[in-house]
Design a binder for these strands. Sequence first.
DNA 1: ATCAAGAAAAAATTCGATTTATTTTTTAAT
DNA 2: ATTAAAAAATAAATCGAATTTTTTCTTGAT
Lengths: 224, 224
Amino acid sequence: METAENRMSSTDIYQTVRNGLITGRFEAGSKLKPEILRKNYDCAASTMREVLFRLSCDGFVSFEEQRGFKVPVSTQNTLEEITSLRTLIEQEGARLSIENGDIDWEARFAAAHHKLAHIESRATAVNDVSPFIDVWSQAEWEFHDTLLSVCGSKMLRQLHRTFYDRFRQHQLLRDPDSMGFRPETLDEHEAILKSAINRDTELCCKLIKEHLHNNLMAYFNQLV
Amino acid sequence: METAENRMSSTDIYQTVRNGLITGRFEAGSKLKPEILRKNYDCAASTMREVLFRLSCDGFVSFEEQRGFKVPVSTQNTLEEITSLRTLIEQEGARLSIENGDIDWEARFAAAHHKLAHIESRATAVNDVSPFIDVWSQAEWEFHDTLLSVCGSKMLRQLHRTFYDRFRQHQLLRDPDSMGFRPETLDEHEAILKSAINRDTELCCKLIKEHLHNNLMAYFNQLV
DNA sequence: ATCAAGAAAAAATTCGATTTATTTTTTAAT
DNA sequence: ATTAAAAAATAAATCGAATTTTTTCTTGAT
């Protein structure tokens, strides 16, 4: 008998689709029809619907009653709101981490930065950065998450993750070729690392704000 | 032919269950089985499951794969995290509203406070406050939401609403008879109103922090 | 040609049943 | 009496089809 391929659980499908959404695999504004998508994930339409509902709660897809699911359309205002909230949350998380963090945290944060800086300098030196996107994204995420890792609030970290990913999603919605990084991020990340390790809370918050503001501006400037 | 009662849409059911959760109609830690609940809402188990997934995203119910849904158990730490995040968000919203708000906002905020104060003073004067819970809850929500109403960020307001409701849910999970209000809230609300209208951002943020901290403390003190 | 009404198609929603996994109960051996 | 394995019962997860609603297409009157 031919073996049936191992099926994914709905949670696996959820993860896969979520990942697809934040890596720009779906076109902005396009419909997400359970009946169509199910074929890609080998499941029933109602299972697909369940997954899409879960994604809609966190804002990765939009839902309108009797009208189904869509990839959200990115507007300037949406991205500004996402950036503001991410800034608010990341500043607070950094504040708490700087307060609580011990030498072990410093070491982990320095290590995360080291990895990230390595990738960023290699990516800056080259013409086509596309092969770096995936590793860079992962390293950047780990850098920012390590900063918050000893803030003491799981909830805050989770919320930060949602807004971090939503920002990335909206960058890609507008510009599917967006790398997400500018050469300047290298210096910005280093400054954040140093301020945190020096326990300079106010400077760190200021640098985070500038870093995220610059990300936002870079995005707007790409809009020809 | 006998007419079939008008059925609720899944979104209606979602709202109803959400409301039930934040008004203490489900016992902490109890299982939420789609097959059982469906009978109360006249729908299929899979529809119920869909609803529960939606609620789990915002933290109103907990979900574990292959083990179903539960009413969350309230721990001290959870409530502290919820309070901290609500404080962070409400302070930021107040800051922005104070910056943007015009005379119309002031008037609406004063009106919301007037209603709330009226209810609070009547409730304070009486022995059994239970008949006031529903109107008070609504008025308190409107007061806090009006404060944020011109912050310019729909997302922030939505997030605030989630944490506002989660706080209330956890109060009731621990103490099903919790009124949610203390006599002191009357003064605290008034002070917040005045500081906002005086455009004293820093004072307003401080008062919000104290107000929410006091809510939290009142909750802990009830734990015998 | 334009528009509205009605018909057809497509998509969203809901359903009841099947399959799969977990939990509880029973049985049997030590 | 305890424990371990097996069986039964319960609950979770998934499915494919039926139903309802929305959207698109067709037709015919102005």
